[in-house]
Design a protein around this nucleic acid. Structure first.
Lengths: 192, 192
DNA sequence: ATATCTACCTAAAGACATTAGGCAAATAAG
DNA sequence: CTTATTTGCCTAATGTCTTTAGGTAGATAT
């Protein structure tokens, strides 16, 4: 029999595609084996376990998303950069809902530290440079923005804003615009 | 043999407790049967399926959370109400991480409409009354707040802010305070 | 006390995860 | 080019979870 040519990378990538098609929760070793037309046990030469496979997909998605954001941020600053970051994030989630779900997959501390997670934080700090925030405000802002992006997009993808007007796009633009104003108001030593 | 006295309600409640102990994803019909010391198949007289059980826990958690928020909001308005709402939400998630995860469980449109989800939106609108926003700004604000609460708390619970200073509490207070300012700036016909 | 109902049971089948051990295809050594 | 070695994929088997079908005994009504 001809070999299928499996590798951990191909499995993770196919797992990401499968996640976008059927949902991250439905990504199983068995489904992946069917997709490659091999026996289930064969995958275990390349991934240690189902958990490791899902972690691999999570790391892949986090890195891909960070790449997108990096590209979106290039040559921009201030409000322009904020919108570019936010839209890159949201667009990725809408194009790749399964990978986005994977990116939210919990990682143990060690894995998280080696993931693209810290890169996301760095990208946010780069974006915030134009807003000229003191510490610890900058860290607060990193967390607020992370929360808004992830939370809003998650709710939108879950259908939370469907069947009601105005459409989600408008609320998104309004929210990011409001955050821009919020950040400008907090520049440097500015209280309350 | 003495009967265990199972009912759908007891199963859902026990499922919520189990979720807090071992994680919502680990709540299974089997684990619940072990907890009640009955055979697995016995549960199927009370719940149609594993999916229905999880949906039941999700609805329970959403309602419980809405109750908490309702209580927190009583007699408060403006910034005070905003902090009360936000803290009730976050405290619930920290006290009941499994139920909080359950509350994020995707529901089909019909179930979602009959859930406490719309009540959450109404509570947010009640909170926003003091900020005197025009439509569609009020809807935008409902969505922004929903996103921030859910996103920030999810990231915090996932350990995203661990091992770094300042602690999450400070970022939370800063963020909610900043949102209060944001909302005040957008009162009525206020552009930019 | 008998009849009905139903809560919980046993039994069985199907899906997924995982491990152990085997064969054949790719690769390296002669 | 042949032989030796590695290793990619296979078969087989076990355990867990979900779900359905049909039975029994304990609760409830007559």
């Amino acid at each position: 029999m001809a070999r299928a040519g499996l590798t951990a990378e191909r499995l993770i990538h196919a797992g990401a595609e499968l996640a976008d098609e059927v949902g991250f929760a439905q990504v199983t070793v068995s489904a992946l084996a069917r997709r490659f037309d091999v026996q289930v046990a064969s995958l275990y030469s390349h991934v240690k376990s189902s958990a490791e496979l899902k972690t691999g997909i999570a790391l892949f998605a986090l890195a891909e998303l960070a790449d997108r954001v990096t590209e979106a941020l290039a040559g921009r600053a201030g409000k322009d950069a904020l919108f570019a970051f936010a839209n890159a994030y949201r667009d990725y989630a809408r194009e790749h809902p399964g990978r986005f779900a994977a990116a939210k997959h919990p990682l143990d501390a060690e894995t998280a530290a080696a993931s693209a997670g810290p890169r996301h934080a760095q990208l946010t700090r780069a974006l915030l440079r134009a807003y000229d925030l003191d510490e610890p405000d900058q860290t607060h802002a990193v967390r607020l923005l992370g929360g808004v992006f992830q939370g809003f997009v998650t709710l939108e993808l879950a259908g939370g804003f469907a069947h009601s007007s105005p459409d989600a796009q408008q609320s998104w633009d309004w929210s990011i615009g409001a955050l821009d104003a919020l950040l400008r108001n907090h520049a440097k030593t500015d209280g309350e």
